[in-house]
Design a protein around this nucleic acid. Sequence first.
DNA 1: GCAGAGTTTTAACGGCTGTTCTAACTTTAT
DNA 2: ATAAAGTTAGAACAGCCGTTAAAACTCTGC
Lengths: 200, 200
Amino acid sequence: MTEPRRRRAASAEKVARLLDVTEEIILREGFAAVSSRSVAARAGMNAPLVHYYFPTLDDLFVAVVRRRADQMVERMAAALASAEPLRAWWDLVSDPPGTALFVEFGAAANHRPALRAEVSRVARELRQMQIGKLASILGEYGVDPDEFSPTLVAAAIQGLAVVVVADRAAGYDTAPEEVAATMTRLVTRLAAGRAPRPSG
Amino acid sequence: MTEPRRRRAASAEKVARLLDVTEEIILREGFAAVSSRSVAARAGMNAPLVHYYFPTLDDLFVAVVRRRADQMVERMAAALASAEPLRAWWDLVSDPPGTALFVEFGAAANHRPALRAEVSRVARELRQMQIGKLASILGEYGVDPDEFSPTLVAAAIQGLAVVVVADRAAGYDTAPEEVAATMTRLVTRLAAGRAPRPSG
DNA sequence: GCAGAGTTTTAACGGCTGTTCTAACTTTAT
DNA sequence: ATAAAGTTAGAACAGCCGTTAAAACTCTGC
């Protein structure tokens, strides 16, 4: 039972650090600025060492996506299970850097099969969680599910978050703060008008 | 008045071809696949010739964005002036490659000042056109502008288009076709229930 | 014909890339 | 102490990058 513990622990720390600095570089300088050398430099290592832990840069990217995805799925589950699901959901996605990273990865994944598979997986999982929840609460919120279907609402909220985060990050000056504030108000109002169970 | 016409015309054609192939490469292989050599090869030229017309790659990118932006502004104006503004607007943005290119450029522009300025300009202009139109028609459509403000609706439609186009392009399998169809139905229903002028 | 402007090509520069090989080093197990 | 396993560092590979300089070609105006 005396397996190598210290080594494994040290390695795990380094792997985590590599994932951290990769996210940092992507957010601050963009996807194109990520290289085995740039990551290594910021992590205080050498390029070959990066390839020791992640043989290919794609492996590194996939690991970053996977870690973020797991975290995001967990948080989304908690949000949807909270007292105000819609509001918690919006707070979660309208706040960087999660969505900002998702935007960067979404664009980059378009032409990288390995990345696309990972991003696709988390996108589908999150969407299904959201649609499932919406199906059971839209009625309570007094929203006509025939006019605004769960599928449409889920996509709209995700899209709204992407636009707000992207505009805010790039400074497009399309009033992202106003959009976010209005959305928060709308979501709050919906929650306030919630009927515990429609009498029938 | 006998200015050099043939030469200028030939140059203009080449410039247009460079913009075309640049868009092609971005859509098919991604932003990272664009280089003076790859563009030149697909256009049947040499790398230095690309730099003859566009001294810097950023100049090329800016030209591509500018051309698309002008085209998009023109089409959006026509859509918003049509009989069914909301529907025409949705049809315009939910259809690639315009929005797909916007997504790619949006991500790339995040860390390229020259590009960001151009993208910002068109994003703001389009958004203001949309908000202006929404302010005058949301009431006619029976939408409460206090609950769904023009700013929010405009951002939501743009976000929805981005999500649908991105998901469709990458094959995320988050039912983009269903979302698009539902949105089209919603928009059509809104137009059908339009009141020429609210009595009172 | 010639001059000159406009256009195109060849060659090359330094720099950064992903990745691999190899050797050195460090820790663990015995 | 030693063998083995795990980890790190140095050097180098071919390849592509943006860009430039300079020479060659082509066309226009005279």
